[in-house]
Design a protein around this nucleic acid. Structure first.
Length: 664
DNA sequence: ATAGTGGTAGTTTTT
DNA sequence: CTACCACTAT
């Protein structure tokens, strides 16, 4: 063991300290200030909802740069890339354009760029392909069939379940056997097959330069753990690290953080245990409390003054979280005491719930709240279907975030598959998609063709030379396409070639709804036009696919901003003047699928996240009569999270329909 | 080996 | 409602 030399830190002279352009002391409260001006060593900032967490991070970035630190040596890991971009944009406004040069993004996007550069050390070429969840399931399905597991007497779990299990094992750092015992005891019979399948899956990907979401993190950790030189290099490059939303990171991500900070320990984690809502991705709200164990000597800063919401709103959110089984760490308070009482609105039916929301939004707009400052939040994407129709009738323009992803529709995946094999000819997942589109080609023939093209360098040439006459015409057309695409430089032009080839196939397969699908492809073309390399396009489609879908009335009123409809998960970190939470009914929220103890606790935190999005007005509604498919009309019960709240906190509002006759 | 049909079970949240 | 399975006809 080498003795580590003791360090003596030279402080910046006070003359230098006076020269900061930003008045940090004046613009931040004491706790925020402490988090902003301390740059050396590990910090944990426990920041309640609306306590200026983002503000703190933004000012800290500015402060670091103003202190003379190279922007590129700062790494800001956030939950979405959008969040990182937003923060850096704000920092740039605050200070100057240097802030744009800060490295920022999600764990996954950071892993992606790092592995493209240094992945060779863990067996990855720079052109690896990222599999999304659907692709991963396709592979699992294939392997399951190969092993005859689909034909067993005792039914083997569905591909989605298999994917869940394998992914959970990785993200929770738990061996499959233990995981089955604790979470899937009914599948213990299949333990051996599942283990074999998991390892076959890993080999399959490794052999073809395929990487799923979990692999991005797994390989990055492996790289950092096994390759000392790379770890030291990366750690020295990223001398100042910040991790946002730490409560939603998992053990694998914690490992990565620990390794990345190994050279300097300059790491600030920011989060709120009460807002941990991603356990299905392996996050555990206790992880954030483990941070000081990961980094001995961690200083903890707690932000408790809420700047977002009025006290009446906070009283409700505090009451919601007070019902949690485990105590959380903070009690929020606000200086904004004025404001209307939050309301709970039982509506006779779902249709009336939608009408109530629309009508109240119209009133809010007349009272001067722009649509862009109003949001409707829900547990699950489909809860908003009825409301979407009603909003269209009321001509209220909206964006919907979360839920449906056009990237996952079959036709978009088909088109992208053609681009993907250009980038990585070993991408058999995409080859399979492409080949199955051809007339008379099924799984067997695809398999044969893929084997055939693998054994030669020029794919197009091999396709044309495939010996079975039956497929010659189709394969020649495909080969021609590949050649034309290769001649194009811009992703947009490449995609145009592909669509010219793919359109007839699409028309044939989906004669009925062809126009609708064609519109999605036009959308894809518009997106592709924003990119100048194929790789960048494909990476973004995998890691940050477009999730906003815009309501149809958009065209009529582009200027006045859009109302936001959002799942609560996608609303994380955002805020609005007025927030509606719909479908706050037992069975929907909490969802029927989340009735186990741990799950219920997370559902409660989810309700907390939803309610804390509101600055001033909060409306919680649920239908009394619910039409349940297959069952008929049932009585809706208010969500347990709001039912127990005192009427002084959450004032009940009764819906009365205007009667038709005016006689009386 | 593939394509088409008919019946049935499952139906959240996201990188 | 749709994705998935089993089955049948080509």
């Amino acid at each position: 063991m080498q003795p580590t030399p003791e360090k003596y830190v030279l402080r910046r002279s006070s003359a230098r300290r006076e020269s900061f352009r930003i008045d940090y002391r004046g613009e931040l409260n004491a706790a925020q200030y402490e988090a902003v001006v301390n740059s050396e060593g590990p910090f944990l900032v426990v920041a309640g909802a609306g306590t200026g967490k983002t503000r703190t991070l933004v000012y800290r970035v500015a402060r670091l740069i103003e202190s003379g630190i190279e922007p590129t040596s700062i790494l800001l890991l956030t939950f979405t890339r959008k969040a990182a971009g937003e923060m850096l944009r704000r920092a740039s406004l605050l200070l100057d354009g240097r802030c744009d040069r800060v490295a920022g993004g999600t764990f996954h996007s950071f892993a992606n760029t790092t592995l493209r550069r240094f992945g060779r050390n863990v067996g990855l070429e720079s052109n690896f392909t990222i599999l999304d969840r659907g692709d991963a399931e396709d592979v699992l399905n294939l392997l399951r069939a190969d092993r005859g597991l689909d034909r067993k007497e005792r039914r083997f779990p569905r591909k989605q379940t298999i994917g869940d299990i394998i992914s959970a094992g990785i993200n929770r750092n738990t061996p499959l056997g233990a995981l089955l015992e604790s979470d899937y005891p009914h599948l213990l019979d299949h333990e051996e097959d599942l283990l074999a399948l998991a390892s076959a899956y890993a080999t399959y990907k490794q052999d073809r330069q395929l990487v799923d979401y979990d692999d991005l993190l797994l390989k990055l950790r492996q790289l950092l753990a096994e390759n000392q030189a790379t770890r030291q290099h990366l750690s020295s490059v990223h001398r100042y690290m910040m991790v946002d939303e730490y409560q939603d990171t998992n053990l694998l991500q914690a490992d990565i953080v620990r390794l990345l900070a190994s050279e300097h320990q300059n790491i600030m984690a920011v989060g709120d245990d009460a807002q941990s809502i991603y356990s299905f991705r392996g996050a555990n709200f206790r992880n954030i409390m483990d941070f000081p164990n990961l980094f001995p000597g961690t200083r903890i800063i707690v932000l408790e003054e809420n700047y977002r919401s009025t006290q009446p709103v906070l009283d409700v959110t505090n009451a919601i979280i007070a019902g949690a089984r485990e105590r959380h760490t903070k009690h929020l308070f606000s200086k904004r005491s004025d404001g209307p009482s939050p309301l709970v609105i039982p509506t006779p039916t779902e249709a009336l719930q939608s009408r109530f929301v629309c009508q109240r939004i119209l009133e809010l707009r007349e009272e001067g709240t722009p649509l862009s400052d109003i949001a409707v939040l829900f547990r699950s994407s489909f809860h908003a279907f009825d409301l979407e129709l009603e909003l269209t009738r009321y001509e209220l323009p909206f964006v919907k975030r979360g839920g449906f992803k056009f990237i996952e529709t079959a036709h978009v995946k088909d088109a992208l598959a053609h681009l993907r094999v250009i980038n990585n000819p070993q991408d058999t997942v995409s080859w399979l998609r492409i080949l199955l589109l051809l007339d008379g080609v099924g799984p067997r023939a695809s398999e044969e063709i893929m084997r055939w093209i693998k054994s030669g360098p020029d794919v197009a040439q091999r396709l044309e030379a495939f010996p079975r006459r039956r497929f010659t015409l189709a394969l020649q057309a495909l080969a021609g396409l590949l050649r034309r695409v290769h001649q194009q430089r811009e992703p947009e032009a490449q995609l145009e070639e592909i669509l010219r080839y793919y359109e007839p196939l699409l028309k044939q397969a989906h004669a009925d709804d062809y126009p609708k699908r064609r519109k999605d492809l036009d959308q894809l073309l518009t997106i592709a036009a924003r990119y100048h390399t194929l790789e960048a396009l494909l990476v973004d489609m995998a890691l940050e696919p477009p999730t906003d879908s815009v309501g149809e009335v958009l065209a009529t009123s582009p200027d006045e901003g859009l109302l936001t409809l959002s799942t609560i998960h996608s609303a994380k970190g955002l805020e609005w003047q007025a927030v509606f939470i719909i479908w706050a009914a037992e069975g929907r929220f909490p969802s029927t699928y989340s009735m186990r103890d741990d799950d219920i606790e997370e559902e409660r935190r989810l309700m907390y996240v939803a309610a804390t999005r509101a600055k001033r007005e909060l409306y919680v509604s649920y239908p009394i009569h619910i039409f349940e498919r297959g069952v008929g009309l049932v009585m809706g019960k208010p969500s347990r999270f709001i039912e127990s709240l005192a009427p002084e906190l959450l004032r009940p509002l009764t819906i009365v329909e205007e009667s038709d006759d005016w006689t009386g």
